[in-house]
Design a protein around this nucleic acid. Structure first.
Length: 226
DNA sequence: GACCAGGCACATC
DNA sequence: GATGTGCATGGT
């Protein structure tokens, strides 16, 4: 087992070059991820809410239920009784909270965009993000996941993996806030939804494989950045 | 049986 | 603005 660097280690600012070479190292190891498990943009949106603080394997079970019942469409989910929805998404955990959040999002999606991805997509990124954040139950990460992974908008998603991987390599403070982390990526990297998508996916992959609570740094492609 | 996993809103100080 | 708490399932 590898010992962790002390957490009081001073933060070092990543340069554009470091961010890009890290990305290349990851991509070389894992290949292009071009990622988010989901067949349709709508499924990605639902998944983004269901996966809040939850392992994806549990979310999958909920999605399977929704598909099996043939209700994974904007109209069907908008109309489905709350109790039935709660029952179907039960495996994803926090099912009462998430039922409310899904319903809140579906109401918004229906009211503002007629439940149409295309219409929603036409909205300007900043405006869309602001309105998503007004929906109860949609915070920054969920909003950005929807924007990037469902709608292909160029915005970098910050999640637990991003924070863990980057802070373990001293590129972040222990509890750095969402906006400043996002700024690091977005100010240093070219504005590309493809890059933001794949980079974040690479971080998730390296986080899952090597950067757990007990990290396995020996074979980690980011080893030299420790 | 404890601990963990791709957050968020809300209460309180 | 920082800190604490409730929300719940399924895998390890």
């Amino acid at each position: 087992m590898t010992l962790l660097k002390p957490i009081h280690y001073p933060k070092r600012k990543p340069s554009r070059r470091v961010l890009l070479t890290m990305y290349k190292a990851l991509r070389q190891e894992f290949g292009y991820r071009n990622w988010w498990p989901g067949d349709t943009p709508f499924e990605v949106m639902v998944g983004a809410i269901l996966t809040q603080n939850t392992a994806w394997t549990n979310v999958e079970k909920a999605i399977v239920n929704l598909k099996k019942e043939k209700v994974l469409t904007p109209e069907k989910l908008y109309k489905i009784p709350t109790k039935r929805l709660a029952k179907l998404i039960r495996p994803a955990g926090y099912f009462n909270v998430k039922t409310k959040r899904l319903k809140a999002f579906l109401g918004f999606f229906h009211k503002e965009y007629g439940g149409r991805i295309k219409t929603m997509s036409k909205e300007k990124l900043n405006r869309l993000r602001r309105s998503l954040l007004e929906v109860k139950g949609i915070g920054k990460e969920t909003a950005d996941s929807i924007l990037l992974y469902a709608l292909g908008k160029p915005i970098f998603v910050i999640d637990a993996y991003t924070k863990r991987v980057l802070s373990r390599h001293r590129y972040l403070k222990e509890n750095e806030d969402y906006d400043s982390i996002q700024k690091v990526f977005m100010e240093l990297l070219p504005r590309s939804s493809f890059l933001y998508n794949d980079y974040h996916a690479q971080i998730v992959e390296v986080g899952k494989r090597y950067c757990k609570k007990v990290p396995h740094c020996e074979r980690c492609p980011l080893k030299k950045y420790l």
